[in-house]
């Protein structure tokens, strides 16, 4: 637990390096919701292969790291079906309407001091904190 922030920083540097490779190499902004969303709604047809192979890398690397990471992995995901469906729908709709999520607006936006990225990040963190407070501490659902 005490070492968590170091792993957080190391992981963060890896994420940022991935974003730097995608920007400087391919000239693209690394946003998870945009890369996936473009595949889903057809807006990303012109660079389909690039999006797919990006997602393959994202899914494959954690699997490769698993054996050398000798800590039990638990995602502590809720099993409440209504919460999962509501949360998934909100994340899907919200990120596409706002045109970005934690990676696109958060990492790629804030690092270039984009007003839109900063404002989006403030709003999703506030909304997330408030929702969690209501559903955990007031209603006791999650």
């Amino acid at each position: 637990m005490e070492m968590d922030w170091i792993w957080g920083l190391v992981g963060g540097l890896l994420i940022g390096t991935g974003g730097a490779v995608f920007l400087l190499g391919n000239g693209r902004i690394m946003g998870a919701s945009g890369i996936l969303g473009g595949l889903i709604d057809g807006s990303g047809r012109s660079n389909l292969a690039e999006r797919l192979i990006f997602l393959v890398g994202m899914v494959l690397l954690p699997l490769l790291l698993w054996p050398i990471y000798n800590v039990e992995i638990d995602t502590h995901m809720t099993s409440n079906i209504s919460v999962i469906i509501a949360a998934g729908l909100l994340v899907g709709v919200g990120t596409r309407i706002a045109n970005g999520c934690t990676s696109g607006h958060g990492v790629c936006g804030i690092s270039r001091f984009s007003l839109r990225g900063i404002v989006a990040t403030v709003f999703y963190i506030l909304a997330g904190g408030l929702t969690l407070a209501i559903f955990r501490h007031v209603l006791g659902v999650i």
């Binding site: 509501a86 994340v91 706002a98 934690t102 404002v119 709003f123 929702t131």
Partner: peptide
């Protein structure tokens, strides 16, 4: 309004499940 509303909706889902797209 899309940036704000979308981010609020996203944040609500993020808080509920603790998962974002990445």
């Amino acid at each position: 309004h899309r940036l704000i509303t979308g981010s609020v909706l996203f944040g609500m889902g993020w808080g509920l499940a603790g998962l974002c797209p990445g």
